[in-house]
Amino acid sequence: MARSRNPAFRAGLLAAATRVFGERGLGASTASIAKEAGVSTGTLFVYFESKSVLVNALYVELKTEMARVATDGLPIDAGPREQLRHMWDRWIEWSTTQPEKRRALAQLGVAEDLTDESRAATGEAYADIGALVRAIAEAGPMRAAPLALVLALMSSITDTVIDDLLLDPDPAGARSGLAFDAMWRALAG
């Protein structure tokens, strides 16, 4: 008889994997993740049949959470700049208040065993964000650039700002605002 799967255990395992991968990288063992979660390795494998399955599940979980946070409360009637600024501010807040998740996501983003299905699942979560960025870029100096390049540029700027804010917090958001303005000019002219 198969064991039933408790959603709270699954969430606990994903939280433990977030901490362990964020601290030790993807080379961390499933045993260390199980220990961090306070369960046996066998219990981990009841929920995730392999480390690869765990890596993919956590990647989808964190990327989807990040997209949800960015678009939560998005001012639909606002213009593209205000919408992008809303997402920017939410990403910055999520990343600076949960650096563990950000570190884990950075590790997961380069995992060799990410599947096409996982990438597609996160692509769906970011579809509206991609459409907004494409519309903004098409009206500016980046109009001839592939969307992947535009998104990579945005990601690099965002990561640089987050790294800076983690080292030297800026409660008033002045540096974040300056970086957003620079990114906006690069995208929209």
Score class of each variant (00 low, 15 high):
A131G: 08
V69R: 05
M1S: 14
A172F: 13
L14M: 06
R134S: 15
H86C: 03
S29E: 01
A8M: 08
G12C: 07
L14N: 02
P99W: 00
E93N: 08
E61D: 14
Y47S: 08
L132N: 05
G42R: 05
G79N: 02
S4T: 12
L178K: 15
A17H: 02
V46P: 03
R85G: 04
A15K: 11
E138Y: 07
N6V: 09
D72G: 04
H86F: 01
G140I: 04
F21I: 11
D128C: 03
A111L: 01
S176R: 14
Y59A: 02
D163E: 12
A125Y: 04
L13P: 05
K51R: 05
G79V: 01
L132K: 04
R143Q: 13
L58E: 05
Y47K: 03
D168V: 11
P75Y: 00
P146T: 07
L149S: 14
L84H: 01
E61K: 12
T158M: 12
T43R: 08
R24Y: 07
A179S: 14
V53T: 08
Q98P: 01
A2D: 15
R10Q: 12
S50I: 05
A70F: 03
V150N: 09
D77C: 11
G173V: 08
L14P: 02
G177M: 08
V39Y: 12
P99R: 00
F180V: 10
R103V: 07
V53H: 07
D170R: 09
R103A: 13
D159W: 09
K51Y: 02
R24I: 05
S29L: 01
A11N: 09
A182G: 13
V20Q: 02
R143I: 07
Y59C: 00
S52E: 13
A148R: 13
R10D: 06
I136D: 05
W184P: 05
D77Q: 15
S40H: 03
P80N: 06
E23L: 08
S155E: 13
Y47R: 03
A145W: 09
E49L: 08
E112Q: 14
V150R: 09
Q107G: 05
G27Q: 11
S32T: 10
G173L: 08
A121S: 13
D89E: 13
D159M: 10
K51S: 00
I92T: 12
P7M: 01
G42L: 05
D163Y: 06
A131R: 13
A57M: 04
D168M: 14
R90F: 06
L54W: 00
R24N: 11
R143L: 07
L74Y: 00
L105H: 08
E36M: 03
D128L: 11
F180H: 03
D168L: 12
A106F: 10
R19C: 07
